[in-house]
Deep mutational scan, measured.
Amino acid sequence: VTTYKLVINGKTLKGETTTKAVDAETAEKAFKQYANDNGVDAVWTYDDATKTFTVTEMV
């Protein structure tokens, strides 16, 4: 189990959160659900070296 981080650069929601998951795909599903629940529709990137997902909402 690995800890993954999500950085949110949204128009109305900004911040960071983490989740523990067995792999990046599982973490991504959890983070996308979190973003969807909070109304963030954005572009996703992932950095495997830092285990960090970044979501940037387009203006």
Rank of each mutant, 00 (worst) to 15 (best):
N38E: 07
F53P: 00
L6R: 00
E25T: 10
W44L: 06
V55W: 06
T54V: 06
K29F: 06
T18R: 05
V7Q: 04
E28N: 04
Y34S: 03
N38P: 05
Y4N: 02
V59Y: 12
D37P: 07
L13W: 14
W44F: 11
T26C: 04
T2C: 12
V40N: 05
K29S: 06
V22T: 11
N36W: 15
G10P: 02
T50K: 06
D48T: 06
T56G: 05
T52K: 02
T50I: 04
L13N: 07
L6P: 01
T26R: 05
L13F: 15
E16I: 14
D37A: 13
K32R: 14
G39C: 10
V59R: 09
G39M: 13
T12R: 11
T56S: 09
N36P: 07
V43N: 08
T56P: 02
K32G: 02
V59A: 10
E57Y: 13
T18P: 01
T3D: 07
N36E: 13
N36K: 14
F31S: 00
T52A: 01
L6S: 01
V22G: 06
V22D: 05
D37W: 14
K11Y: 08
N9S: 09
T52E: 02
T45F: 09
D23C: 04
D47Y: 02
I8L: 08
T52V: 04
G10F: 15
A49W: 06
T56V: 08
A35Q: 05
A42F: 15
V1Q: 11
F53G: 00
D41P: 07
A49C: 06
V7P: 00
K32S: 03
T45N: 07
K20L: 14
E57C: 12
G15C: 15
K11W: 09
V22E: 08
M58H: 10
E28V: 05
T2A: 10
A27G: 00
T26V: 05
T17D: 03
V59D: 14
V43W: 07
F31Q: 00
F31N: 00
L13Y: 13
K14Y: 10
A42S: 08
E28I: 07
F53V: 01
K32L: 07
T18Y: 14
I8V: 07
A21N: 02
F53Y: 04
L13E: 07
V1W: 14
L13Q: 08
E57R: 05
N9F: 13
E16K: 06
L6H: 01
L6Y: 01
D41R: 08
D37M: 15
V59N: 12
T18E: 08
V40I: 15
A42T: 08
T3P: 02
K20W: 10
F53D: 00
W44H: 00
F31R: 00
T17A: 12
K14H: 10
F53Q: 00
E57M: 11
K5M: 06
T52Y: 00
T45D: 08
A21E: 03
K14C: 15
T19C: 14
Q33K: 13
K14A: 08
V59K: 11
M58T: 12
K29N: 06
T2S: 10
A27V: 02
D41A: 09
E57A: 08
K5D: 02
M58P: 10
T3S: 06
Y4S: 02
I8W: 13
D37T: 12
F53W: 05
V59T: 11
N38L: 15
G15F: 15
D23S: 08
K11F: 10
T17G: 04
L6E: 01
D47F: 02
L13H: 13
T56F: 08
K29C: 05
D47P: 00
T54M: 06
T12K: 11
K14R: 10
A27C: 03
E57L: 12
T26G: 06
T54H: 07
K20H: 09
T50Y: 03
W44M: 08
F31C: 01
A30C: 12
K11H: 12
V40W: 15
E57F: 14
L13A: 07
V1S: 08
E28S: 06
A30Y: 15
T2L: 09
Y4H: 02
K32T: 05
T54S: 05
T52S: 03
T19G: 02
K51G: 02
N36T: 12
F31Y: 01
K20V: 14
N9D: 08
Y34F: 12
A42G: 15
D37V: 13
G10V: 15
E25C: 12
A42I: 09
D47R: 01
V55T: 04
L13P: 05
Y4T: 02
G10H: 09
K14M: 10
V55N: 01
V22R: 11
Q33H: 07
T3V: 12
D48W: 04
D37Q: 13
T17W: 15
V43S: 08
I8H: 03
T19N: 02
Y46Q: 00
E57H: 08
T26L: 05
E25P: 08
N38K: 11
T26K: 05
K51C: 03
V22K: 11
D48Q: 07
A49R: 09
A35W: 15
T17V: 15
T18G: 02
D23A: 02
K5R: 11
Y46K: 00
K5T: 13
Y46S: 00
I8F: 12
Y46V: 00
D48N: 06
N9I: 14
N38F: 15
T3W: 07
T45L: 07
Y34L: 08
A27S: 01
A24D: 03
K20Q: 14
A49N: 09
G10Y: 14
G10D: 04
T45P: 00
G39L: 15
N36G: 14
A21V: 03
N9A: 08
D47G: 00
D47K: 01
T52M: 02
K32C: 06
Y34H: 04
A21H: 02
A27D: 00
T12G: 12
A49L: 11
A27N: 00
D47W: 02
E28R: 11
K29G: 04
T12P: 05
L6K: 01
A21F: 05
N36D: 09
F53H: 00
Y46R: 00
K51Y: 07
L13C: 15
N38S: 10
Y34C: 14
V7C: 07
D23Q: 02
T52Q: 03
Y34E: 03
D47S: 04
A24L: 09
A30H: 14
D37F: 15
T3Y: 06
D37E: 12
V7D: 02
M58L: 12
A42R: 05
K14F: 10
T50A: 05
K11I: 14
D48R: 04
Y46E: 00
A42K: 06
K32M: 08
W44I: 04
F53N: 00
F53E: 00
T52W: 00
T18H: 07
V1M: 14
L6M: 09
M58V: 12
T56W: 11
K20M: 13
G39F: 15
E57G: 06
V43Q: 09
E16Q: 10
E57V: 11
V43L: 09
N9K: 10
K32Y: 05
A35S: 05
A24Y: 14
T3K: 06
T19Q: 06
F31K: 00
T19M: 14
K11D: 08
N36C: 12
T12Q: 08
D23R: 03
K14V: 10
A42W: 15
T3M: 09
E57D: 10
F31V: 01
E16D: 05
V40M: 12
T26W: 05
V55S: 03
T54E: 04
T2E: 12
A49D: 10
D37G: 09
Q33G: 05
V1H: 10
D23G: 02
V55D: 01
M58Q: 11
K51R: 08
A24R: 14
D23T: 05
L13G: 10
A30R: 11
A30V: 14
K5V: 08
A27I: 02
G39T: 07
W44E: 00
Y46T: 00
M58G: 10
V7S: 03
D37S: 10
A24P: 10
D48K: 06
E25Y: 10
A30L: 14
G15P: 05
V43D: 06
A21S: 04
A30N: 08
K11G: 13
K29Y: 06
V55F: 06
T3I: 13
D37L: 15
I8G: 03
T12M: 10
D47Q: 03
G10C: 15
K11P: 12
K29A: 10
K29V: 07
V55C: 11
